[in-house]
């Protein structure tokens, strides 16, 4: 089964979703990411979904879940590069992802994470 790679860059874990997400893949990512956070003791996670063009309520909820889980493990999460169509779909589905930090691109996401880490 293919998996989504989780890269470490300095203090930060970098997840780039480049393929169509299906439910199994999303669950695997959830497992991998939570264990990576604890094992590598990182305090920041950046999820890039700029290549994601299709979402459903499950993927939307998964994004919220991953954020919440990271928060419990004391890691800041930021979701970057959401496409307009994806944002509209999520809003129409009623998923407002209240606890999720977002940024326009990886650059601004990194800035946001750095600021958050400095604040704590």
């Amino acid at each position: 089964m293919d998996r989504i790679p989780i890269l470490r860059m300095g203090e930060c874990l970098l997840v780039t979703i480049q393929v169509d997400m299906h439910d199994q893949l999303a669950l695997a990512l959830q497992d991998d990411l939570t264990s990576a956070i604890t094992k590598q003791r990182t305090r920041a996670v950046l999820i890039d979904i700029s290549a994601l063009v299709m979402v459903d309520s499950f993927i939307g909820r998964m994004l919220a879940n991953i954020s919440a889980m990271s928060k419990i493990l004391d890691a800041e999460t930021v979701v970057v590069g959401m496409q307009p169509a994806v944002a509209i779909t999520l809003v129409e589905l009623g998923l407002q992802l209240p606890g999720v930090r977002t940024a326009l691109n990886v650059d601004q996401g990194m800035k946001l994470l750095r600021r958050a880490l400095r604040a704590t």
Partner: peptide, 12 residues
């Protein structure tokens, strides 16, 4: 509010 939420999801 929908528009605001969608913009926030994108990071604006």
């Amino acid at each position: 509010l929908k528009t605001v939420t969608a913009a926030r999801l994108m990071g604006a």
